[in-house]
């Protein structure tokens, strides 16, 4: 019996044994991973790479913004005065607090406090909602004043001073709009996590999706941290 696995049974039999072997594991473990730790490592790396792509996606807009600011510095300065720094500050605080609540939610999951996790996730979603409501008021004010991209621009005072004043508002709406879409996506992601958490999907052994959602939410926060001074605090 030096070649104990008979040629005829070889692969199939061993495959069965392997399959049985996997059944003894945590239900969240996917078949191609050896253990939850490896699975979590892979998810984390993937998430960070995804965040890199997000940053580069916004990167194009940031570069464009910087170029046009150097070309039209007076326009940039005059136009930014039409934004409301108070509302901008409020939104910055709101997002910062929401980053805290999501981080705390993960901590609670690590400690196995399922209800606290749910509450904190809920709070994060609520804060994201506040952010969007504030944004809604800002946008409607701009629309009301005709501070819009392209042909829709109809702000007489700025139009009299600058030939292409609308470009600033193109950047404003594109960048904050894309960010707003990310906030919305974040609310959906966090909502899904809340729902699963309420059904007991996470435990101190397994809370990778929560961590991934948290990473994503921090990114949304950080992008705003850059948008805020760039638009609202131009010197």
């Amino acid at each position: 019996m030096s070649a104990p696995v008979a040629q005829t049974t070889g692969t199939a039999a061993v495959a069965e044994a392997a399959a049985e072997h996997h059944q003894g594991h945590h239900p969240a473990l996917q078949h191609h991973f050896e253990n939850l730790e490896q699975q979590a490592d892979a998810a984390t790396l993937a998430m960070w790479l995804f965040l890199v792509t997000e940053i580069l996606l916004f990167g194009g807009l940031f570069v464009g913004f910087a170029i046009y600011q150097t070309w039209y510095p007076e326009l940039w300065h005059a136009a930014h005065k039409k934004l409301d720094p108070v509302l901008g500050t409020v939104n910055t605080v709101v997002l910062l607090v929401s980053s805290f609540t999501v981080a705390y939610a993960i901590r609670m999951a690590q400690l196995g406090k399922q209800r606290a996790t749910s509450w904190l996730l809920g709070a994060t979603i609520a804060l994201a909602g506040v952010f969007l409501v504030v944004k809604y008021f800002e946008y409607s004010h701009k629309i009301h004043e005709g501070l819009l991209p392209g042909a829709a621009f109809s702000h007489a005072e700025l139009a009299a001073q600058f030939s292409n004043a609308h470009v600033f508002f193109s950047f404003y709406f594109l960048m904050t709009g894309l960010h707003g879409l990310h906030v919305l996506a974040g609310m959906i992601v966090l909502g899904g996590l809340l729902w699963k958490n309420a059904r007991g999907a996470y435990s101190p052994e397994y809370f990778t999706p929560l961590e991934m959602g948290g990473l994503y939410w921090h990114l949304v926060d950080i992008i705003w941290i850059f948008l805020f001074p760039l638009f609202y605090l131009i010197k």
């Binding site: 580069l56 996606l57 194009g60 807009l61 464009g64 991209p149 392209g150 193109s170």
Partner: peptide
């Protein structure tokens, strides 16, 4: 991703004329 944002901007430019 840079191609993505570039094409997205080109689409917006074509559809709305944003002057970028």
């Amino acid at each position: 991703p840079v191609l993505g944002i570039t094409l997205a901007l080109a689409m917006v430019e074509r559809a709305f004329g944003v002057g970028i």
